[in-house]
Design a protein around this nucleic acid. Structure first.
Lengths: 203, 203
DNA sequence: GATTTTCATAATTTATAGATAATTTTTTGT
DNA sequence: ACAAAAAATTATCTATAAATTATGAAAATC
């Protein structure tokens, strides 16, 4: 019996390119040429095309037919838009998640909170922070909403890693603790209120 | 010089499949076999794969690696989720659109309103209704937000056409008129309020 | 003896590779 | 600066490999 998660080559390529774009190793507007990428991954260009298509769907790349795909630009308007969408959507997800929270969800949220406070460099903080925001919402069981939010958080991460790369220092996040406590108390209104403040705070 | 909009075969296939799913000609959970579709469109399966990938991104199809793609299911939970997301996002878009509305936007909105009232069957009403909702929001100039809303409206359409197919009669939509009037007065709050009521009203 | 179970094989289908046609970009010569 | 040719790149097609599902016959159980 095989427990392999049936990962396709496209998946691997997509994952790698996503990382590189988020980390800024691939710069905005940089062309993504299918043959070059295919060579780098030792495959043909077909899975590359599919990976690029998925990057487009996530807003990390843009394509002009017959002219190729490029890394998506990223200007202040984009940041503004992403913030507005997160501000509109994450509260909805949280509201619906809280009544459905399982002990397992709560446990994972606590772990994520700890991991987040323990992070000592920007890259790992970003990852754990994203994990926390994800885990407090999954219980809402709204797949489209969750995947939209996930995309937005990835885009936020791109901004975060792109701008703050140098100046960062470890700190404990009071907002996260406050949100988690409100969740434990099943106090949706308080949790949503803190979350909104938290989202507004991030640059 | 060619003014062709550079449409690819994938685009055509995607468009056609989207229509068929929305219209219910392709039933939920029906398998979408790439070879069969390729044959139907007189192409190879490669562009079909790409079209299917885009349907996935839009939530109209789901894929299990190496097991193929199927038309997405569509149960009451999905409807609830889609409604919740539209309710959260469309007001944001409208709020930002109103101050940026151009005379051209307004003109198109008026035309769409008329077309909507003049529609005399469900299918064309659905199309014009979607057009109206789109045209009052485009001015916000937030591409991700707009494309997310567009997807949601397509999914709403799928529900609408799937359930109400038989019983429908022409009518003028007071909400649309009220929204448009508020937009003309640049009264964002009123416009958003009516839009919210309108979105809540749809089943 | 009939029914189910298991295993191997065949058929279908997906995923990837390699090749070709069409289009865009770059280069070069005037 | 412009036009034509060359190079590079995308989009598509045909072919092949890998995996899954379906089929059917032999063995085992009741």
């Amino acid at each position: 019996m095989k427990i392999e998660p049936n990962i396709t080559i496209s998946d691997r390529i997509q994952q790698a390119l996503t990382d590189q774009i988020i980390r800024g190793q691939l710069k905005p507007d940089e062309p993504l040429r299918q043959n070059h990428i295919a060579e780098a991954f030792n495959t043909s260009h077909v899975p590359v095309r599919e990976a690029l298509l998925r990057l487009q769907a996530r807003g990390l790349a843009v394509s002009i037919p017959r002219r190729g795909v490029r890394v998506a630009l990223f200007d202040p308007d984009d940041i503004f838009e992403i913030k507005a969408m997160r501000f509109a959507l994450e509260p909805v997800a949280l509201q619906h998640a809280i009544p459905k929270m399982t002990p397992d969800n709560l446990h994972k949220a606590k772990l994520a909170l700890r991991a987040c406070d323990d992070a000592d460099d920007l890259v790992s903080w970003e990852r754990t922070n994203r994990q926390f925001h994800k885990v407090i919402l999954v219980a809402c069981a709204m797949p489209r909403l969750l995947s939209t939010i996930d995309n937005l958080q990835i885009l936020s991460a791109r901004h975060l890693l792109g701008t703050w790369r140098s100046t960062w220092e470890a700190r404990t996040d009071r907002d996260h603790t406050a949100i988690l406590n409100a969740i434990i108390r099943k106090d949706s209104d308080a949790a949503v209120a803190v979350l909104k403040k938290h989202l507004q705070r991030l640059a």
